[in-house]
Computed example of a mutant assay.
Amino acid sequence: MRNTARWAATLGLTATAVCGPLAGAALATPSSAPASLYAPSALVLTVGHGESAAAATPERAVTLGCAPTSSGTHPAPALACAELRAAGGDFDALTVKRDVLCTKEYNPVVVTAAGVWQGKRVSYERTFANTCVKDAAMSSVFAF
């Protein structure tokens, strides 16, 4: 009996949390303007040492917002947003610096990006042999 009461309370609270905001939208007048004309673009970027995001502890993390203006804790948000827009939001298509020479030292660095890019959910992870290789491959997006 106690389990049934807990489940009923949990489902009731979940329904209220999910459907509550929708009830206010139904009461909005037709003349209400949308909150924004831009699809959301907000990311959390991390860098850490390790072979995968699961095995690595993030050493640095920044936020990057790109719509309607560049913002966040990223040191160069305008440049990072411009590079992501040019790549169509594809992290693998970011510009690679060709004139960089890196050592063959193996000290893996993993980068991650999670959030929303132009209204679509983004989850990205990539491991590089070392910091030099990461910096040569990822332009300014993961330069923090």
Rank of each mutant, 00 (worst) to 15 (best):
K104F: 04
L84W: 01
S70L: 00
L101C: 15
V62F: 13
D135Q: 02
W117V: 06
S31T: 06
A15M: 01
T112S: 08
A56H: 14
V111A: 12
A55P: 10
V62W: 11
A5N: 12
P108I: 04
E83W: 04
G65M: 15
L45V: 13
D99Q: 04
A33P: 10
L84V: 02
L37Y: 09
K120W: 00
L13K: 11
T29L: 10
K134H: 13
A39D: 15
A136N: 01
V111D: 05
N3E: 13
P75S: 00
T63L: 13
V109Q: 06
A25C: 10
A56E: 14
T46G: 11
T14K: 07
A25H: 12
A113T: 06
V96E: 03
P77C: 11
F128Q: 06
V116W: 14
A56Y: 07
C81V: 09
K97M: 14
Q118Y: 05
G48V: 05
L43A: 09
R60A: 14
L27Q: 10
A114T: 09
Y106W: 15
V133F: 00
R85W: 00
S70I: 01
T131R: 02
T69A: 14
A26K: 09
V18R: 09
R121P: 04
G115T: 07
L13T: 10
G12K: 09
A129R: 03
G24C: 07
A136K: 00
K104H: 06
A53L: 07
S52M: 10
S41W: 05
A93E: 01
V47R: 14
Y124R: 01
T112C: 07
E59S: 15
K120A: 11
G72M: 04
E125G: 08
T112R: 11
E125D: 05
L94S: 05
A28P: 07
M1G: 05
Y38L: 14
V110H: 00
V44D: 08
E83T: 05
V141P: 01
S140E: 06
R60W: 12
F128T: 04
V133R: 02
W117N: 04
A8D: 11
T73K: 09
E51A: 12
R2V: 15
G20L: 02
A114Q: 05
E105T: 00
A113G: 03
Y106A: 14
V133D: 01
T4E: 13
N3D: 15
